[in-house]
């Protein structure tokens, strides 16, 4: 089979977006055992949901186009965590949420919030140097926010030139400020 997937895997490799569902598949090779699902455990309090929503909106804010909250990213992130990630990922994610909760993130002003996320970004880079089967909160939050936003109907249509049926394949020259095609 593909080899069509080569393209997909290029994307995976370059985005560095190998998160749990992909890693899960890899683990199967290593262990050759049936995975145990652990879907039940994940839930967020109302405060935690608010923190997720605010962080998502800071990653993809409303500008002249829709933002993360407008297109439902917060609920998407929660749904993805429940449906696609298992307990070790949940635990790692909750470590991040809890630390923001302890920081009283929702009570911080815009600049302070930005500073908190910048700090988290740097910490994440350090943590990612140690190989692990799970990814830190910031990385997963960012991955799911971008995925949720850039594959949402409003997100795609506002961000890209969406072409459902190209009908042809051509080498072309990029025009100034041309947006990416999305298919």
């Amino acid at each position: 089979m593909n080899r069509r997937e080569v393209i997909k895997s290029v994307a995976l490799m370059f985005g560095g977006t190998l998160s749990a569902p992909t890693l899960m598949a890899m683990n199967h090779w290593e262990q050759a055992t049936t995975p145990t699902t652990n879907a039940a455990a994940f839930s967020l309090t109302a405060t935690q949901q608010k923190i997720i929503a605010e962080v998502a909106e800071m990653i993809i804010p409303r500008t002249n186009t829709a933002g993360a909250k407008d297109v439902g990213v917060p609920a998407f992130v929660e749904m993805m965590l429940k449906d696609c990630y298992s307990q070790p990922d949940h635990q790692r994610f909750m470590e991040g949420v809890t630390s923001l909760e302890q920081l009283k993130f929702l009570e911080l002003n815009e600049a302070e919030r930005r500073g908190a996320l910048k700090m988290m970004e740097q910490q994440t880079k350090e943590q990612m140097k140690t190989p692990s089967k799970t990814v830190p909160f910031w990385r997963l939050m960012k991955e799911l926010t971008l995925l949720g936003y850039f594959t949402s109907e409003a997100g795609i249509k506002a961000s890209f030139e969406y072409v459902q049926i190209p009908g042809k394949l051509e080498n072309i020259k990029l025009k100034t400020n041309q947006k990416s095609y999305a298919y």
Partner: peptide, 22 residues
């Protein structure tokens, strides 16, 4: 590279969002 290059890259916010559309 598409928008998913943003996952591993530094940054967030309006300019970051705009950049990923190219």
């Amino acid at each position: 590279e598409g928008w998913n290059r943003g996952v591993a890259a530094d940054g967030f916010g309006g300019d970051f969002k705009e950049n990923l559309t190219k």
